[in-house]
């Protein structure tokens, strides 16, 4: 049992957990993830590690309620425990000194971005972070990202806070202003990462995306997380989760994300029915 020691609501449907997982806490590096099985009947869910405290032996995870399994995970409270936490998985981000790096985060992808921004800054890079959300209410980690970035630009789709528009548009603006950019890191909804890749492609700016693929074991056994990268097929769990965004087939990833939509909805409906029965 991996005990939850802290729980904090960051935004509607977005929750931050600190979980006791000492082995993971002491070996994880930015960019890596864990696979969690909440309870006996649960599926295994991959979640990126936002931060860790090796001394306390805890890791932090940010979970957005999206489908059945994430809704169940978010219902856990301090003192409860997740049945299984496996990690750290995936390859860590290459923390080199690139020069100027623009990190673009969208929605809950910002949670994945945070440790990478922090690491890149520590590696001596000038880091410009674009933190995007649908609206002000859904924006997360503003303060944390501000503390580890040289510049922080906020965008909201509806203009309720910061610049109105998308991260990719702001990035285009930076390029148009002749900002010399050595690396772009994009993490968020697949559509957003695809848009960022298209912005940087004509300028040949090296761009990395962190994929959020469907997987079961997270250790290379199932191959459910296959991704086409250029001419090759890679496994997001062992070869990734970060890949060259100019080579990733994002449309294939979007289609894969919808493969189990119907089953997820069934599970959700069952859960709602059950909750209503219990209330009645």
């Amino acid at each position: 049992m991996y005990k939850i020691v802290k729980k904090q609501d960051l935004a509607p449907n977005i929750t931050r957990f600190s979980v006791e997982a000492p082995e993971v806490a002491r070996s994880r590096k930015p960019g890596q993830f864990v696979v969690i099985r909440a309870e006996e009947t649960s599926e295994r869910v991959p979640l990126t590690i936002v931060d860790s405290d090796p001394e306390k032996g805890t890791i932090d995870l940010i979970i957005q309620k999206a489908g059945f399994s994430t809704t169940r995970l978010v219902s856990f409270e301090v003192g409860d425990g997740f049945l299984d936490v496996l990690g750290p998985l995936g390859r860590p981000t290459d923390m080199e000194k690139y020069g100027t790096v623009v990190c673009v985060g969208g929605g809950v992808g910002t949670a994945v971005l945070y440790p990478i921004v922090k690491g890149l800054k520590e590696a001596g890079n000038e880091v410009i972070t674009i933190n995007g959300a649908r609206n002000k209410e859904l924006l997360i980690l503003e303060e944390e990202l501000g503390a580890v970035s040289d510049e922080l630009i906020i965008t909201t789709d509806d203009g309720s806070y910061g610049v109105k528009g998308f991260g990719s548009t702001v990035l285009q603006g930076l390029i148009d202003d002749k900002k010399n950019i050595d690396l772009v890191v994009a993490i968020g909804p697949t559509m957003m990462m695809k848009a960022v890749a298209e912005v940087t492609r004509p300028y040949k700016i090296h761009t990395i995306a962190s994929l959020n693929a469907i997987m079961i074991d997270g250790t290379g056994m199932c191959g459910g997380c296959r991704v086409t990268v250029g001419d090759e097929v890679k496994f997001a769990c062992v070869d990734g989760p970060e890949f060259d965004a100019h080579l990733v087939d994002f449309d294939e990833q979007i289609a894969k994300h919808h493969y189990y939509d119907k089953e997820q909805k069934c599970q959700m409906d069952l859960m709602i029915d059950k909750a209503e029965e219990e209330r009645a």
Binding site: D217, M221, G223, G224, A255
Partner: peptide, 18 residues
């Protein structure tokens, strides 16, 4: 890589382990 194509490992892990 089309949807609906999986390894036997994935299919059997879903059935047996999960």
């Amino acid at each position: 890589n089309l949807n609906g194509i999986s390894s036997a490992n994935e299919f059997l892990t879903r059935v047996n382990l999960m």
